[in-house]
């Protein structure tokens, strides 16, 4: 191997600084959430304690955090499942020409670039003017889908762009019905990418703020609750909550990544019988 050029070390240092920039602040609030009971929002640490985490578990101290966490979690799962199913269907549809394909593609792009607050405002207006109640599981759910579906569909486009059609042809030649081809050939091959779509669906929903702002109704999701806290809570309890939900996000991301890795391995194992033939 040729020796690394000098630019490698310069760029490497830049990259390290970038990572520090990305993660530094989050790590800082993680440390500060262990402030002693007398500590404030900045350094120095006045002792270390679990005081602020304990505060979180006392309902009266800070709003309805656990209720909002439950709602965000359920909503995240709902959005995740819907995103995966609809994205796969959309991705499959886009492999052939169909009427409205162009329109749908531009709608996807619009959904991606439209300022979130417009979705919030528009969906809120529709519900209020037609006498429906806004609720996180109806209006909030739909509003979040406009953010997760474009990502899901774009991932599916990328997946199907790289999909080798001869697998399907082989299945069809062997007499598989179109459902069997989908179930036993296409889905196993795109499986690992679907975990990626699920990751986007869940985490983007779980953290979404602007699109749920006017569409969640009287029961807050967690990001709304946290934002409410920023205006009236000036103790490290805010950091404790931030740390907990970030840890939760990281756990979910880790889980999804492990699942993706596992299913990619499984695919590699099950997808070929090379070397097992009888010679």
């Amino acid at each position: 191997m040729e020796p690394r050029p000098k630019s490698f070390y310069v760029l490497g240092a830049f990259f390290a600084l970038f990572l520090l920039f990305l993660y530094g602040p989050t790590i800082t609030i993680a440390i500060l959430s262990f402030q002693g009971p007398g500590g404030g929002l900045t350094f120095p640490m006045r002792g270390t304690s679990l005081h602020w985490f304990r505060d979180l578990f006392e309902q009266q101290a800070v709003g309805d955090i656990w209720g909002s966490f439950r709602r965000s979690f359920v909503l995240g799962l709902m959005v995740m499942v819907t995103t995966v199913v609809l994205s796969v269907m959309g991705g499959l549809a886009f492999r052939k020409r169909f009427r409205g394909a162009g329109v749908l593609f531009y709608l996807i792009i619009t959904a991606l670039v439209i300022p979130s607050i417009l979705i919030s405002l528009g969906v809120g207006l529709i519900f209020s003017q037609s006498g429906l109640n806004v609720h996180w599981s109806t209006s909030g759910f739909g509003a979040q889908l406009t953010w997760t579906l474009p990502f899901g569909l774009l991932i599916m486009f990328a997946v199907f762009n790289r999909f080798d059609k001869s697998y399907e042809e082989a299945a069809r030649d062997l007499g598989a019905t179109s459902w069997q081809t989908l179930r036993h050939v296409v889905l196993p091959i795109i499986g690992p990418s679907l975990i990626g779509v699920a990751l986007f669906g869940f985490t983007l929903s779980y953290d979404e703020f602007a699109r749920t702002l006017l569409t969640a109704g009287s029961y807050n999701t967690l990001p709304l609750e946290i934002f409410g806290m920023t205006t009236n809570v000036t103790t490290p309890v805010l950091y404790a909550l931030g740390t907990l939900t970030t840890v939760f996000s990281l756990l979910m991301i880790g889980l999804f990544l492990c699942l993706a890795l596992w299913s990619a391995r499984r695919k590699a194992r099950a997808g070929t019988d090379a070397g097992k033939g009888m010679l």
């Binding site: 989050t26 950091y239 939900t245």
Partner: peptide, 12 residues
């Protein structure tokens, strides 16, 4: 994939 609001708060 983590919360934007918390990433903002963490600059305080």
């Amino acid at each position: 994939w983590t919360s934007n609001i918390i990433r903002m708060i963490s600059w305080i």
